[in-house]
Design a protein around this nucleic acid. Structure first.
Lengths: 340, 340
DNA sequence: ATGAAAGCGCTAACAA
DNA sequence: TTGTTAGCGCTTTCAT
């Protein structure tokens, strides 16, 4: 069995309170401090965080529930969050719910039993029912990437509407008029917003939008492949495609390869996320890049703040951060602008 | 505060032991069972795993320490492991040590304090010093992907030597004689083994190997870019390149793009891992694919077995599983075989 | 600055 | 089958 504080007390002849005080930054006489440190070394003592957690009712652990770990957007965010949280003494329990509402609910319950101090969640259930029970404990929840109406917690989001609008404007400025979109599942807020930006750009530019240019897929690689095939088949006069997440971008590129379509000669493309993948494409892909590191920092920062200040002190004042995306230029857009 | 078993005892008029027995699959009279279940519903009771952990000296949590979460090979393995472990009631605490020995050691210590029941580790420190202390607790450790000599634990590895040999034979059979390699850091066992397979294939085939065809990089995207540039510059007569991990494969593809080298006309390529990326390349890349799901299943399976059976029962008999890779054919190899 | 003692929520041994 | 009780390792009053 591992050594306990009792063992140290026995060995040093000190009381338990003194040892505890030593570990919690209290005042301990220099002489005793040395004695304690010697005992720690000899006994290979290590604080038992489980016991501490039971006593203090705080596990210094945060749960993270995401749709897919095996997804570079999620993975990038988690890497960064975990780093920050661990540097502040918090462990991270990651639960991958495989984009399944039931598994998501189970994950939150699981984390509740584990008594995590807070949960960071990229939600699959767009109603947020899975969070209700956990929220009753008064512990903080931070939503990332996707918003949920009427759930009392903080959110860190991306300005998806603007992201889509910017991408479309880029196409329009280059002279494109028939631009297709491979969008995501309409239940997911990010997909809605990206569709919205897409439509708004058409409106602002004053071009008519043919509904056959709109394709709804499911944010997967396979969805991207299919979306591209459908769009190309339905719209022989389409000159450009906007793909609205990374997996589908990869799928669209696979589709282009398999159909032997030349980019940008035959079709111009703007993809989403993962700069390195964009660089590896030939020609280099122009993409909308989301600020994953920034999302992670903001989310971890808010979580740490809530953890330290408590969630219900005075006015709750839940915040919603909205971060901006950036377009990284490649060579996948053909300029067919007459003036230029 | 959350409800406790005491509250249930009070509400039902039963004793603590009965409630505990209910939760641990003991025999409870039907009538009482119903009473308990009603109380649970009314009080929104949830077992406190922290208290349980303190008492049973088992947290039902396993720690996973890896070099980079933001790495598809790791992410794929973790996704699968986490899934399996959670289905068996175990939580997973993932620690990303950013390929840093010091952080890796800290992560293991951190997990020790958290009293995880076992650790699954893709090691960065090739001597395994970071594990010594944890192993003293008698808790199981499972190493994945990279082996360490003289550490008493199970390992799940890949037959890297054969993987490299197979890839090289494929080149040789297609008529290539001057094949370069972009290898990894020699401290890492997988890199050593892949180099070994590379050399062995040359020996077996009886072709002379020019040392300038060997390039040592660091398993990163940037390393892949540089490796490709170096090889191409140093070996104008090189007809093929074998790239030995996913990040470097992506880097090599970026390099090929940026240098405007045609695959396979000017250079044939075999990459490593990530089938989807290979499909997205134009032409489709031939790759060596590692069995990530299988690695995860084996590792999780061994961990669960150790967790249930205890680690030191009778003969320890540590096992070393060695899994095989597979070549997924693309169109990135030119056939320059005279006979064919 | 230090010690004694209570108790966090649970399990398990023992008794009934 | 059920109740009583001790105690897991720690923190935290309250004395001293």
């Amino acid at each position: 069995m591992a050594a306990t504080m009792k063992d140290i007390a026995r060995k040093t002849g000190l009381g338990l309170a003194t040892i505890s005080s030593y570990f919690n930054g209290g005042n301990v006489r220099e002489k005793n401090r040395e004695k304690i440190e010697e005992a720690i070394r000899e006994l290979h003592y290590e604080v038992n965080e489980v016991a501490r957690g039971l006593k203090t009712n705080a596990t210094r652990t945060v749960g993270v529930v995401i749709p897919e770990l095996n997804n570079i957007f999620c993975a990038e965010i988690i890497t960064e969050m975990e780093d920050i949280l661990r540097n502040h003494g918090y462990a991270t329990i990651v639960c991958d719910c495989r984009t399944d509402r039931k598994l998501e609910r189970e994950a939150v319950e699981f984390l509740g039993r584990k008594r995590v101090d807070g949960i960071i969640n990229m939600p699959v259930d767009t109603e947020g029912r899975h969070l209700k029970k956990f929220l009753k404990t008064g512990k903080p929840v931070v939503l990332i990437d996707r918003k949920i109406q009427g759930v009392s917690c903080d959110s860190v989001l991306v300005n998806n509407e603007k992201a889509a609008e910017d991408a479309m404007e880029l196409f329009f400025r280059s002279g494109h008029r028939k631009v297709g979109i491979i969008g995501g599942p309409v239940e997911i807020s990010t997909a809605q917003e990206r569709f919205l930006g897409f439509r708004r750009a058409y409106e602002k530019a004053g071009f008519s939008l043919d509904e056959s240019l709109i394709c709804r897929e499911d944010y997967t690689i396979q969805g991207g492949v299919q979306g591209l095939e459908k769009l190309v088949e339905r719209n022989p006069d389409m000159t450009a495609v906007f793909v609205t997440n990374y997996e589908m971008t990869m799928g669209a590129v696979i589709g282009l390869n398999e159909l032997g379509i030349q980019v940008p000669e035959q079709l111009s493309v703007i993809g989403f996320d993962n700069l390195q993948f964009a660089r590896a494409c030939s020609p280099k892909l122009t993409i909308v890049a989301q600020p994953t590191v920034e999302i992670a920092r903001k989310a971890a920062g808010i979580m740490l703040k809530r953890l330290e200040e408590g969630v219900g002190e005075g006015a709750p004042e839940y915040l919603t951060e909205k971060l901006n995306t950036e377009i990284i230029m490649g060579k996948s857009i053909r300029c067919i602008n007459e003036e230029k």
